[in-house]
């Protein structure tokens, strides 16, 4: 009896491991192919598109890639600027707004919070036509500002920061700072922000990745190739000029995600913990 149960549990465990390993391989396979083919020539890829080891055509692929419309350095710099700017704006002002919601009692506090809850899920996409026309009128279509400034109002992050402050902030700290004569703004910058560091760290990672990956808004706003961000560079690889340059296309794709891979494998533990925490919406 007992032996039978044990055997069935072991075979279940075997099934679990086989399925998990299979799923893990499915996650890796596309990216592995991408990195390997980035080093292979078009001819090699045409002969056999799956390779487990790199070849020697990395530099020739690079030359073909940058010889056409793809400019990874420009794309990288622009994406860096946009993602860093948007992340700084989002975490700072979301923390400030959350602090206003937690530390002060003002008449509109509850209505304002309800309002933030109500706009939590409004996507930027549904207002894109008005947004585009607005930017066109003020000549900001080829500027990076419209990709950075809207991040100052990120309702979901305010929500998260508020929940965090509600659980951690003791108003006695604020009061004692006041007795010491600290101004309200000083108190926020020097005392509250350091307390919020954990929440800021996890939210910053997600904000950066979200901004880095954003395609829709840059695609409608940016027409000047000196302003292109990485995802737009990627969309260029879809064009006819790279049609037969398989190796270069793979290399271009690999370049756009390289920073993400570095961030992910350095911080994966915290990213996954962050997803789990973000999920526990109250």
């Amino acid at each position: 009896m007992k032996m039978g149960m044990l055997a069935s549990r072991n075979s279940t465990k075997a099934v679990i491991y086989i399925v998990c390993i299979f799923l893990a391989l499915i996650s890796i396979f596309p990216f592995w192919i991408m990195f390997m083919n980035a080093t292979r020539s078009t001819f090699e890829i045409q002969q056999n598109s799956v390779a487990f080891w790199p070849s020697t055509f990395l530099s020739s692929n690079w030359k073909i890639l940058v010889g056409k419309s793809f400019n990874p350095v420009t794309g990288f710099m622009n994406s860096m600027l946009v993602s860093t700017g948007a992340t700084l704006g989002a975490v700072y002002f979301s923390s400030l707004t959350a602090y206003a919601l937690v530390a002060y009692s003002w008449k509109l506090r509850q209505p304002f919070f309800t309002f933030i809850m109500a706009i939590l899920m409004i996507p930027a996409q549904v207002s894109s036509i008005g947004f585009y026309q607005f930017m066109y009128r003020i000549h900001w279509t080829n500027s990076l500002w419209p990709l950075i400034l809207p991040a100052i109002a990120t309702p979901a992050m305010v929500f998260f920061m508020r929940q965090y402050l509600m659980a951690t902030l003791s108003l006695e700290i604020v009061d004692s700072a006041r007795i010491d004569g600290a101004g309200e703004f000083f108190t926020f910058n020097r005392i509250i922000l350091p307390i919020m560091k954990p929440a800021i760290a996890t939210q910053a990672i997600f904000s950066f990745v979200f901004s880095w990956n954003n395609l829709f808004l840059p695609l409608i706003l940016l027409t000047d190739n000196k302003k292109y961000t990485m995802p737009i560079m990627v969309s260029l690889l879809r064009g006819d000029i790279y049609k037969t340059e398989y190796g270069s296309v793979y290399l271009g794709l690999a370049l756009t995600v390289l920073p993400l891979f570095v961030i992910y494998f350095m911080l994966s533990k915290y990213i996954i913990a962050g997803v789990a925490l973000g999920a526990l919406k109250e």
Partner: peptide, 8 residues
């Protein structure tokens, strides 16, 4: 795959 650029 969730954090990798969807365009890519």
């Amino acid at each position: 795959p969730n954090i990798i650029t969807a365009a890519t």
